[in-house]
Simulated assay, not measured.
Amino acid sequence: MTGQLAFVESPVQLLNVLEWAHAKALQDPPRLQAIPPQPNRRAPAPASASAPASASAPASAPAPASAPAPAPVGREGGPAAPHPLAGLTVVVLSPTDPMSRGQLRRMAQLARDEGATVKWQDARQGRGALPRTLRELAGPLRAAERVIIGDPFSRYVQLLLTLFGPRRVTVVDDGTATMEFAAQLARGERLVRWHRRGSRGPRELVLAPVTWLARRKLAPGPRRTVEIFTSLPVEPPPGTTVLANDFAWTRSAFGPPRLTRGADLVGTSLVETGVVDPDEYLRAVQVLARTHGATRYFAHRRESAEKLHRIAVETGLEVVRPDLPLELIARRGPIGRTVVSFPSTVVHTLPLALAGTGVKVAVCEIAPEWLRENASPRAQGFLAGVAGTATLTERLEFG
Rank of each mutant, 00 (worst) to 15 (best):
S10V: 01
A43D: 10
P64F: 06
S54G: 15
H195Q: 13
L396R: 08
P238Y: 10
R105K: 13
G115L: 03
L282E: 11
T391W: 07
L93I: 02
M99W: 11
I149M: 03
R331I: 04
H83F: 14
T117R: 07
P98Q: 02
A379W: 01
T250P: 01
D246L: 11
V234M: 08
G74C: 07
T260H: 05
A59M: 08
V287K: 11
A253G: 02
F7C: 02
A6N: 00
F153Y: 14
F254E: 01
P368A: 10
R258E: 15
F181P: 04
V363Y: 02
L161C: 06
V320R: 13
V8L: 01
T96M: 10
P79C: 08
V147Y: 07
R193P: 01
R203L: 15
K217H: 14
C364Q: 15
R41I: 10
G188M: 11
G316L: 06
Q158N: 08
I366N: 00
E235M: 11
A367N: 06
R135G: 08
P95Y: 00
P152H: 10
V192M: 09
D323S: 13
H300D: 15
P325H: 04
F298Y: 15
G198I: 11
R372P: 03
L288H: 07
A330C: 14
V192D: 13
N40L: 11
L160N: 08
V319E: 02
E314D: 15
E397A: 12
G115C: 04
S100V: 00
V313G: 06
L308F: 03
L85R: 00
R146E: 15
R301Q: 09
N40D: 15
P37L: 04
R321P: 00
F398S: 10
R395F: 07
V17R: 00
V12G: 07
S60P: 02
L141T: 15
V210W: 05
F298K: 04
F164N: 12
A45D: 09
V118K: 02
S304I: 09
L88A: 03
A312R: 15
L308T: 04
L159H: 05
V8Q: 00
P237M: 13
A219E: 13
N16Q: 13
P37E: 02
R106N: 12
R261S: 12
A86I: 05
V90Y: 00
W20E: 03
T268D: 07
H22Q: 12
L32V: 14
K217W: 15
P325I: 02
E327R: 01
A312H: 14
A108P: 00
F7K: 01
R215D: 09
L218C: 07
V171L: 13
V271S: 04
G150L: 00
D97C: 05
A53M: 12
P44A: 06
G358R: 03
P278Q: 06
T133D: 03
P377L: 10
P377T: 10
